[in-house]
Design a protein around this nucleic acid. Structure first.
Length: 610
RNA sequence: GGGCCCGUAGCUCAGUAUGGAUAGAGUGUUGGACUUCUAAUCCAAUGGUCAAGGGAUCGAAGCCCUUCGGGCCCGCCA
């Protein structure tokens, strides 16, 4: 860690000076990258000591600085006391430049080592409809979190939970059976979209005029849960087909999984009874004999098991969560699910298959914050049962902008909440298509000689990058208002802006593929320093993103890096700059390597040309 | 009624974890830069009582309390 080394050295030098000249006690203080114009590293230690020593921060800063001794082997060139009270250190950039260039171009730069392992569950969309843009945030946040953790050295297993039982599935079965929908989707329409847009929505409309259908739905639901019935077989056939279509969408965005967990397997495995017995014996749940919940098993006034003996939605989540944290034995075997590009995907089975081990240190469940209450209860139940591994990673939902909603013929006062049941949503596939067409148009305009395959690859990369970046660049606690027009933008704080800077660097390196890596780089311009500084910060970015489980940290870093490179590119000639050329090419190469690496943590593949 | 999230430039957002130096980007508007490594770029100007009030602090956008505004959750639905 290049920058960390510098920070550490400054910290040590200040610590020594305080110890020798000011006081014996240890003091906690912060050493951080400096703001622009104040050197390279700053410390606020003088402020902290001000009260205790009854002196002004400026006085203390001078005393500390006077006692600082920097060795010629270190990375610090000088340390100064600023009148404000800050202590600012200036790095020895001749040394630092060489170190940064060497480190950042090495394999695995930014990676951390860890013996920890974790599960990340995300996506988990009911298999009765296509993914909408709200689901996309879940999918992409989850995918990026798993990539960040891998970069941080964790062993990561990515799970996708398929709720192939339940009311939404019964709705679809009823639609096909009783409302006579064709089992084939129309030509050119994906099966998931057909189920969600046509069958599911229209079935729900029918309930309003034909309430007798609700009884039929309940019977279907019962049959599905029993397994080995015609309805169950039909449900399986449909949900499998929808799942395949949904996975196609996810895979297209560069998202992959390790395990598919089926709710039907969880139910048939009998895990629920095991958990329920434990909840009862540990007195975590109690049986109500009076009040409005009479005859129910409850946890803190929340019904777990209804008076008719069936489990609620919350209850159904508990066995899976308990299995994830490993407090009940694994009843499943695993077989391959065919078709995932790049890595092997497994699915649970109750028949023959391989065994797997899921003994992990941390379990992250990506679900939007509307489910925070429920997730808190589950977290507490698991804690009561002895596991503190469970983390609910929440994020605010995606709504449609008024303009986009109106454009779809949705009547709204302001933003519109999406609803699969009512058919109010923007599908992921449709957004991808719009982004792709846009990227294709712009790319072919700029590269008229490009063949159609190359054009396709670039357009695909650009559209996936754009969608991914839109879904993670904001804080998880902030709701995203999705707008079709602003999302297809190409300038400013967008993926195309970032990718453009990378493509620029690639073109330069293509023109001069060989240069002297052993040169003494002559990189003293301010723009060059700024770029070097950012390159050296990459490991700290990965560390921050990991400890905060925050995708946006990496996204912002990529953007900052692109800004720094574009500034360097504009102000410094690279090719043909004589004694500067090798150093600048080296810097360009280091930038391209780190940028490619950082983008890959976001699941973004950067094209060499666009 | 209880709980969670948000409120920073006209608009979209960083910065709040760990309080410190002139509060930063993008977009918009206005004006500039392609004979020169891709102008999907860059430069400049413009734009702020950090929702409001109080508190603790030498020092608050950040911490504590209160209020206001916006979103979401609180079912023997899932």
């Amino acid at each position: 860690m290049v920058y960390n080394t510098l920070l550490q050295q400054v910290q040590d030098v200040i610590q020594h000076s305080i110890h020798n000249n000011i006081m014996q006690e240890q003091v906690e203080f912060v050493v951080e990258p400096a703001q622009r114009g104040y050197g390279d590293v700053s410390s606020n230690v003088a402020f902290l000591l001000s009260k205790r020593l009854r002196q002004s921060p400026a006085q203390i800063a001078s005393r500390i600085v006077d006692g600082c001794h920097t060795s010629s082997e270190g990375l610090i060139k000088s340390i100064q006391a600023h009148p404000s009270g800050y202590i600012n250190a200036y790095a020895d950039w001749d040394k630092l430049t060489q170190i940064i260039l060497t480190a950042s171009t090495q394999d695995g730069y930014g990676s951390m080592t860890s013996d920890q392992s974790c599960i990340v569950e995300h996506t988990s969309v009911n298999p009765n409809k296509a993914l909408h843009i709200g689901h996309a945030r879940n999918v992409i946040v989850g995918d990026v979190i798993s990539r960040i953790l891998k970069k941080a050295g964790y062993t990561v297993k990515v799970l996708n939970y398929i709720d192939d039982l339940g009311l939404q599935v019964a709705d679809i079965v009823l639609g096909f059976k009783h409302l006579k929908y064709d089992m084939e989707s129309p030509l050119g329409v994906k099966f998931d979209a057909y189920c969600g847009d046509t069958v599911y929505v229209n079935t729900n409309i029918q309930y309003e005029t034909h309430p007798e259908l609700l009884d039929i739905r309940n019977r279907i639901l019962y049959n599905i849960e029993q397994g080995d019935t015609d309805d169950a077989r039909m449900a399986e056939q449909i949900t499998r087909q929808v799942l395949a279509a949904q996975l196609e969408t996810c895979w297209n965005l560069g998202v992959s999984y390790d395990i598919l967990n089926f709710e039907s397997h969880i139910v048939l495995s009998g895990m629920w009874h095991e958990i329920f017995d434990r909840l009862k014996s540990m007195k975590i749940t109690k049986f109500e004999t009076k009040g409005e919940n009479t005859g129910c098993w409850v946890i803190n006034d929340k019904v777990l098991v209804r008076s008719n003996g069936t489990a609620t939605y919350m209850a159904k989540d508990i066995p899976y969560a308990a299995w994830k944290v490993g407090i009940i034995p694994d009843p499943f075997k695993y077989v391959e699910y065919e078709g995932q590009p790049g890595s092997t995907l497994y699915q649970t089975t109750l028949q023959d298959g391989a065994d797997m081990s899921f003994n992990v240190d941390m379990v992250i469940t990506v679900i939007d914050s509307r489910q925070s209450n429920l997730q808190n209860i589950i977290t507490n139940i698991l804690a009561d049962m002895g596991s503190k591994k469970y983390i609910h990673l929440g994020y605010e939902a995606v709504t449609l902008s008024r303009k986009t909603a109106t454009g779809m013929g949705i009547d709204t006062d302001g933003q519109a909440q999406m609803s699969g049941r009512r058919g109010i949503y923007v599908g992921v596939d449709a957004v991808y298509k719009a982004l792709y067409d846009n990227a294709h148009h712009e790319t072919s305009k700029r590269n008229p000689k490009l063949d159609s395959h190359a054009l396709h690859l670039i357009s695909h990369a650009l559209s996936v990058a754009t969608l991914r970046y839109e879904m993670i660049r904001q804080d998880l606690g902030r709701a995203i208002t999705f707008d079709m027009d602003t999302s297809t933008r190409l300038d400013g704080d967008t993926a195309p802006y970032i990718l453009y800077s990378y493509a620029r660097a690639c073109r330069i390196l293509e023109r001069v593929p060989n240069f002297d890596h052993n040169c003494t780089p002559n990189l003293n311009e301010q723009k060059e320093r700024e770029l070097l500084r950012l390159l050296s910060m990459y490991p700290l970015v990965i560390r921050d993103a990991t400890s905060n489980l925050s995708p946006k940290v990496v996204a912002r870093y990529c953007h900052d890096l692109a800004v720094a490179f574009n500034a360097f590119y504009e102000s410094c000639t690279i090719i043909g700059s004589g004694k500067y050329e090798s150093g600048r090419l080296y810097l360009t190469e280091a930038f391209s390597i780190v940028m490619y690496n950082a983008l890959s943590v976001l699941g973004i593949d950067a094209p060499h040309k666009m």
